[in-house]
């Protein structure tokens, strides 16, 4: 057991598991406190979510209050949530009455699908372009890429998505404008997210490649007579990949942020969309469930990135 615990990979995984538990507790506690601290009467908010604004009334709010026992003291409700969580029970949505697990399994699945497509596409777009620019810094490709990257990063994802729909769906009729259900439906929302991600990962890749190609070992490779592409494949790519992947992990947070907007624009039934609706309707179990799932998702993805980085560069951090 001793040597196993000592191994960097196991240490890393254990740290991440600890982080996951901490995230779960913090998410539960923070959402609970924040939702309770928000101004306004919870019963009316939930009633508005349940019945819609045409039917929200004092009668409906009183019915909600009675149904859900909202007068229960706050600490008791929090303890109940933690106890349920320990039994892997996320509770029921206050608005729809379905279990949170049921709601999230559909929505989270759709979000993961979208995130996977987006992350994959961004890797196909960003790093290759970054490598091209980094190998010839200051040239036309590099400057052009800088301009495009700045543009993509400064325009809100919503606008990029709308332009993509107009061009690729409305004008060219190549892809469906919105909705979900077939792989084709995932392309435009994923591409929108991917372009935002690629804008940054292209710059990171470019800088990483520049660092590598300016290094002593790369110069040595050149001196020993390796040609440009062979030199890059052998000595450049893997070295440059570590910072790019590390940054990719950081970007998952941006991905989750972007999904909230993109899911609404593309009528994609994801967890970001669900979270926004749950916050508006004060649907505490749904907020807790969605935030918890998203928090753990980010931790899990970062763990995967760490493991991949570890495999790419097993020496670990220099002591």
């Amino acid at each position: 057991m001793g040597p196993l615990i000592g191994s960097p990979l196991v240490r890393l995984l254990l740290a991440r598991v600890g982080q996951g538990v901490l995230v779960a507790l913090m998410v539960g506690l923070l959402t609970f406190i924040l939702v309770r601290a928000l101004p306004g009467d919870m019963a009316y908010r939930i009633a508005a979510g349940r019945y819609g604004f045409d039917w929200v009334s004092t009668t409906a709010a009183d019915a909600v209050r009675h149904d859900l026992g909202l007068d229960q003291p706050a600490p008791l409700a929090l303890l109940a949530w933690i106890w349920d969580l320990l039994r892997f029970d996320l509770g029921q949505s206050l608005v729809t009455g379905r279990t949170v697990a049921e709601e999230l399994s559909h929505q989270f699945g759709q979000s993961v699908l979208l995130a996977a497509w987006a992350a994959g596409l961004s890797l196909l777009i960003g790093p290759p372009l970054g490598v091209l620019a980094g190998l010839r810094p200051g040239r036309l490709v590099d400057r052009g890429l800088l301009l495009v990257a700045v543009l993509m990063r400064s325009v809100p994802p919503f606008a990029i998505g709308a332009v993509l729909i107009l061009v690729l769906a409305v004008q060219a009729r190549l892809l469906p404008a919105a909705g979900y259900g077939t792989p084709a439906h995932a392309v435009l929302p994923a591409l929108t997210l991917a372009l935002c991600l690629a804008a940054v990962s292209a710059r990171v890749s470019r800088d990483a490649v520049m660092t590598v190609s300016g290094s002593a070992y790369y110069g040595f490779g050149r001196t020993k007579g390796l040609g440009g592409s062979l030199l890059f494949w052998r000595h450049g790519l893997r070295n440059a990949a570590v910072p790019v992947l590390t940054y990719f992990g950081v970007q998952f947070v941006a991905l989750v942020e972007g999904m909230v907007v993109i899911e609404t624009l593309f009528a994609w039934p994801g967890i970001g969309h669900a979270l926004v609706h749950a916050i508006v309707a004060r649907d505490v179990p749904m907020i807790q469930g969605a935030a918890l799932t998203m928090g753990l998702f980010v931790v899990a993805m970062n763990t995967v990135i760490d493991v991949v980085c570890h495999l790419l560069d097993p020496r670990g951090e220099p002591s």
Partner: peptide, 29 residues
């Protein structure tokens, strides 16, 4: 911006992974 230190690595395996990655990308597209 700072990145983790990058040093020379044994290269054959890296080369293979890169090609696989490219092939996979082409397939996806």
């Amino acid at each position: 911006m700072t990145y983790p230190a990058v040093r020379l690595l044994p290269s054959r395996r890296g080369c293979w992974s890169a090609m696989t990655l490219l092939r996979a990308s082409a397939l996806c597209l």
